[in-house]
Amino acid sequence: MFEARLVQCSMLKKVLEAIKELLNEATFDCSDAGIQLQAMDNSHVSLVSLNLRSDGFDKYRCDRNLSMGINLASMTKIMKCAGNDDVLTIKAQDNADNVMFMFESQNQEKVSDYDMKLINLDQEHLGIPETDYSCIIKMPSGEFARICRDLSQFGESVVISCTKEGVKFSAAGDVGAANIKLAQTANVDKEEEAVTIEMQEPVTLTFACRYLNSFTKATALSPQVQLSMSADVPLVVEYKIGDFGHIRYYLAPKIEE
């Protein structure tokens, strides 16, 4: 038996928003520890890794490990039927071929349940090695989204260049060239408005704009985003999810042909 209760179902709506542009379907692996998801996008350029710890939920029970293959368009249809303040309960029997989503209004006067068929997915799990990154940049997630959106007008690729002084995002194309430089913030009132850089070595890498823009669909999950970079390895774009855990996106860099 699997059962997870979430008083604010808006978190799951935001998670779905954050993955459905990159993934058509995904396997939600449920265990005693929580819910995990790992999947590559269709072109195998990026990888999404989601971790929701069981202790973040208001109630959580998972007697046996359960892998739920889910069509994300179907799940989106169901989650659209939930009010943001509804209490969500997800339930599945062991070895079930369906999962139930139950939404209760705060005053408990409206209760809806939706049964969704699970699908069999041939999932490929990849091992992500522990990496000491040369540069770790933390910045407001809204700022990162704005930069990705602005630069995507100028080219297909964004060059991210990080030094001790700051981080520079650049794009170039038919229109011309664009450069956005962010310095570390000296002092800010709110921690979430800060730009901080931990640098061991300067790094410059090139990435596809399209994927960065897809990652920013997670902006609603966290006020801050963390970018981790090292030469010749994938970029990690991480959004913390409150008391639950995180969503991480890995993006393979582009190389000179």
Binding site: M40, H44, V45, S46, L47, E124, H125, L126, G127, I128, P129, S157, T206, A208, V233, P234, Y250, L251, A252, P253, K254, I255, E256, E257
Partner: peptide, 14 residues
Amino acid sequence: KNKQQSIRNFFKKK
């Protein structure tokens, strides 16, 4: 011209 690499080049299959 930049070439897009696959994420599979970096992470091993479990």
